[in-house]
């Protein structure tokens, strides 16, 4: 099973999903992230799904879980780069991703985190 790498940039953890996600990978990623947030004291999490061509209910639920989980550990989560076809399908599927913040691309996601966490602006 492949593992999704988690990168740390300043106080932000960046997860860029580049593979076809299977359920177990999703679960491991959730656990890895929780552990990294605690260990690094990160204040923000960005999940980049620009390369993801489908999000089903299982993957969608991961976003919600990560968002609520990181909030408990005082970190904000932003999902960035959702493709139009994926967004339309999620709406049709009936998944609203409640509690998950989204941004068009990585840059806008960083800005969104920066705005809500002024201490992030200088990257420390």
């Amino acid at each position: 099973m492949e593992r999704v790498p988690i990168l740390k940039i300043g106080q932000i953890l960046l997860v860029s999903i580049q593979i076809d996600l299977q359920d177990q990978t999703v679960q491991v990623l959730q656990e890895d992230l929780a552990e990294r947030i605690v260990r690094t004291g990160a204040r923000g999490v960005i999940i980049d799904i620009t390369a993801v061509d489908i999000v089903d209910s299982f993957i969608g639920r991961m976003f919600s879980t990560i968002a609520s989980m990181s909030r408990l550990m005082d970190a904000e989560t932003v999902v960035v780069g959702m493709r139009p076809a994926v967004a339309i399908t999620l709406v049709e599927l009936g998944l609203s991703l409640g509690g998950v913040r989204t941004a068009l691309d990585l840059e806008k996601g960083m800005r969104l985190l920066g705005a809500s966490l002024p201490s992030l602006a200088d990257g420390r």
């Binding site: 967004a87 709406v91 941004a103 068009l104 806008k108 969104l112």
Partner: peptide
């Protein structure tokens, strides 16, 4: 709703 999911 889809636009919102995309962050717009």
């Amino acid at each position: 709703m889809a636009a919102r999911l995309m962050g717009t």
